[in-house]
Design a binder for these strands. Structure first.
Length: 279
DNA sequence: AACAAGACCTGCATGC
DNA sequence: TGCATGCAGGTCTTGT
């Protein structure tokens, strides 16, 4: 479920409650999620202190004081839930972590597309999940020149290209639709067909939608943590995503005539766009 | 190499 | 009500 803004919000929430905390007990209730879990995960982490919590792409990296890092991905349906004291496990609670400050953390993931691994800190960049990832969209590396270079000659759709984590990380099905809308670009356009001005619009749009969503995450949750302890899920208004048939924010068109926002399938996934604003 | 399609897994909304 | 279908915010693997 989460894309970059949600993972960022989860990460900040974890940071707040868990930086400096020590694992006191870990209950592992499954041997595998998307991949088999690392051997002896509870034994390895128990007693360790969390040094830092950072995000790379849609991964959370929890560095601990034994030289290792816990690498975590929430997949489509993963959730992390903070609590206090003893946890009564619910269905699909695969791991429960307890800390010396009284905080508990549940990893809950019905579809089990999430993953967890232990990596030596120095080996992080070589980990199969992290190597080959593209640039962070909120850093300095994302420029129109970079986009044009990466997309040059590519016949695939803009939608597919922006979902490709080897080029730019962090965008998923929602924010690709949102970014293309704000850039005024049709999702079926050939990725290699962008002009310099269009590429620049796309850069601005990507930053805008991601930053706005991160801000919504931070401001709509108190301290990034909801009252029920859940991290990273927040109310956010989308311009086009999941709004088929409605008017886009910039259209004052007659809905009956235009049909409003359209939904199409691209490689098996829904894309939403406004046919009047996006070309 | 680039690209599309299929696979993984469960839950939920919809329609008959 | 039960059952079938399709869809869900990700990414890895397979096949052309």
């Amino acid at each position: 479920m989460p894309e970059l803004p949600e993972v960022e919000t989860v990460c900040r929430g974890l940071e707040q409650k868990l930086r400096g905390a020590r694992f006191t007990k870990i209950i592992q209730r499954r041997q595998d999620l998307r991949f088999p879990l690392p051997k002896n995960l509870p034994q390895t982490l128990t007693g360790c202190r969390i040094l830092t919590l950072t995000r790379r792409a849609k991964y959370i990296v929890m560095a601990v004081d034994n030289g290792q890092a816990l690498l975590l991905h929430l997949g489509m349906s993963g959730r992390l839930v903070l609590g206090l004291g003893e946890v009564v496990p619910e269905k699909h609670d695969h791991l429960i972590f307890y800390f010396d400050n009284g905080v508990s953390l549940r990893f809950h993931d019905p579809r089990r597309f999430g993953m967890l691994d232990l990596v030596k800190e120095g080996d992080l960049v070589h980990h199969k999940c992290l190597k080959g990832l593209g640039i962070e969209p909120l850093g300095k590396e994302l420029t129109s020149a970079y986009l044009l270079r990466m997309l040059a000659g590519r016949k695939t759709s803009l939608k597919a290209a922006l979902l490709d984590q080897r080029l730019i990380v962090g965008l998923g099905n929602i924010y690709v639709s949102e970014a293309l809308y704000h850039a005024g670009l049709h999702p079926e356009r050939a990725a290699g067909s962008l002009s310099k001005a269009e590429a620049q619009r796309l850069v601005v749009a990507i930053r805008k939608v991601l930053n706005a969503a991160i801000e919504a995450g931070g401001s709509s949750l108190r301290d990034y943590v909801q009252s029920n302890g859940e991290l990273g899920y927040f109310q956010h208004h989308f311009a086009v995503y999941d709004r088929e048939g409605q008017a886009c924010p910039a259209c004052d068109c007659n809905l009956k005539k235009t049909g409003g926002i359209r939904r199409i399938m691209q490689s098996g996934r829904s894309t939403f766009f406004c046919p009047r604003k996006q070309n």
